[in-house]
């Protein structure tokens, strides 16, 4: 009876076993890398907004404090996009005829809110509260970057779980004094670890790496 398979089939069989393993690992690696890349997390790309609002102009140039518009960050879970009334506080007198501000005037006239596009959108299975982070010494720029230098607003941090847990497991690397929370240009000092450990103690910062801290 003639042989069904040629002798070379042995080598091909061995190679294909190795090849299958390598291919599987490669696909896994690509999925892992792409899922954590800015392509998947949506970092660094400002979404189109109904009004091309510039934090660089309002906060960086005019020196308006974060809390003028986002005062609820200090008290509640959400920092809050300000209502049209807050824009109108100043824009009832300045830049009245700017075509860029047409949606603001329209919104004020009709009472229909401006539909801003959310830049930092956490998955719906994540609980997040701004006020506790501010109380424990996490500055705005730690997560949002130097917003007061952004012409249009984009997401700086990946906002994935690994990124959250990095700080939740080692807060001393990231926390700052409460007096510096709204300083967008704050940089960790050379002795950050020493400072961080002192603040962790002083502000009673707990590590909070339990599932139900964020997944409630």
């Amino acid at each position: 009876m003639p042989q069904v398979f040629h002798r070379s089939s042995n080598s091909i069989a061995r190679l294909s076993i190795i090849g299958a393993a390598v291919t599987a690992a490669l696909i896994g690696a690509i999925v892992y890398i792409v899922a954590r890349s800015p392509l998947a997390t949506g970092q660094h790309v400002p979404p189109a907004q109904p009004v091309p609002f510039s934090h660089a102009h309002h906060s960086g140039g005019d020196g308006i404090d974060c809390r003028y518009c986002h005062q609820s960050a200090e008290y509640s879970a959400v920092a809050g996009v300000p209502p049209t009334e807050t824009c109108v506080n100043c824009h009832k007198q300045i830049w009245l005829n700017s075509p860029n501000l047409r949606p603001v005037r329209e919104s004020e006239r009709t009472g229909q809110p401006i539909q801003w596009v959310k830049v930092h959108d956490l998955p719906d299975f994540v609980y997040f509260n701004h006020s506790i982070h501010i109380k424990k010494g996490v500055g705005c720029s730690t997560c949002h970057g130097e917003v007061n230098r952004m012409q249009l607003t984009w997401q700086v941090a990946p906002l994935n779980m690994g990124w959250c847990v990095e700080c939740h497991s080692q807060p001393e690397r990231f926390v700052r004094p409460r007096s510096e929370i709204y300083n967008m240009q704050w940089q960790p000092p050379a002795n950050q670890l020493e400072l961080g450990r002192r603040l962790v103690d002083e502000y009673d910062i707990q590590k909070k790496v339990y599932c139900d801290t964020c997944h409630r």
């Binding site: 809050g80 009472g111 229909q112 719906d124």
Partner: peptide, 21 residues
């Protein structure tokens, strides 16, 4: 993946209410 679940978050738009909020 339950990323976008059918519930309203703070400040979400709504087609149901006349003021859109």
């Amino acid at each position: 993946n339950h990323r976008d679940q059918p519930y309203y978050e703070a400040q979400d738009p709504s087609a149901f209410f006349p003021d859109g909020k």
